[in-house]
Computed example of a mutant assay.
Amino acid sequence: MKISVSNLNKFLFFKLPSAFICGVRVKEIDENRCVSTVKHRWINQNPFNSMYFAVQAMAAELTTGSLVMLEIQKSGKNISMLVANNKGNYSKKATGRINFTCSDGFLVSQAVQKAIATGEGQTFWMKSIGTNEKGEQVSEMDFEWSVRLKLS
């Protein structure tokens, strides 16, 4: 699959249907940055009238994972990827449309190139920031990714 906004959203539908049903969508992607969006609705709410934390985590992970997938595709190598750890901080109620942005594409590039050069697995942390329609930060998610060259 060629990594693009429309192909990533199709991927969500077929491979991550819970994220798709909750309204998570990729909005933009390039080598350095990925943005996803999700709107607070009945299907993704918590009892406190804001977006459930797991929905925020899905949208945030999508921004980081899409950048990893893009870099692996660019490398042309058979590389596995896995989330090893994650942590999140929630600073404000998530209501309305929330955009998650990850601008850590350069970290992925370094790790993938090192994995290819050394043949050893690499781990690295990526951050995704969630902001509401006013531009206020509502959450910050960190994901530790592991990439490793697969042996043929």
Rank of each mutant, 00 (worst) to 15 (best):
M1T: 10
M1E: 10
I3D: 08
I3V: 15
I3H: 10
S4V: 04
L8T: 06
F11I: 02
F11G: 01
F13C: 04
F13Q: 09
L16F: 11
L16W: 00
P17V: 10
S18L: 11
S18H: 09
A19C: 11
A19W: 05
I21K: 04
G23S: 09
V24F: 02
V26D: 12
E28H: 13
I29C: 05
I29D: 05
C34P: 06
S36M: 09
T37R: 09
T37S: 14
T37M: 06
V38L: 07
K39F: 04
K39C: 11
K39H: 09
R41A: 14
W42S: 06
W42F: 14
I43M: 11
I43V: 14
N44R: 10
P47W: 08
P47M: 12
N49R: 13
N49D: 11
N49I: 11
M51W: 02
M51Q: 01
Y52G: 04
F53K: 07
A54K: 03
A54D: 09
V55S: 00
A59Q: 07
E61H: 02
L62T: 08
T64P: 06
T64S: 15
G65I: 00
L67T: 05
L67S: 00
M69V: 07
E71R: 04
I72L: 07
Q73G: 04
K74R: 15
K74V: 00
S75P: 09
N78R: 12
M81E: 02
L82H: 04
L82V: 14
L82N: 10
V83Q: 03
V83L: 10
N85W: 00
K87E: 14
G88H: 13
N89F: 09
K92G: 02
T95H: 01
I98Q: 04
I98K: 10
N99W: 00
F100L: 09
T101K: 03
C102Y: 03
C102G: 12
S103H: 07
D104M: 06
D104P: 07
V108C: 15
S109D: 14
S109H: 11
Q110P: 03
Q110F: 08
Q113I: 10
K114G: 03
I116L: 13
T118A: 07
Q122R: 10
Q122C: 07
T123Y: 01
T123E: 12
K127V: 14
K127E: 15
S128A: 15
S128E: 02
G130S: 05
E133Y: 15
E133F: 03
E136D: 15
E136H: 15
Q137N: 11
V138A: 06
S139A: 15
D142S: 14
E144I: 01
R148A: 14
R148N: 11
L149P: 13
S152W: 03
S152F: 09
S152D: 12
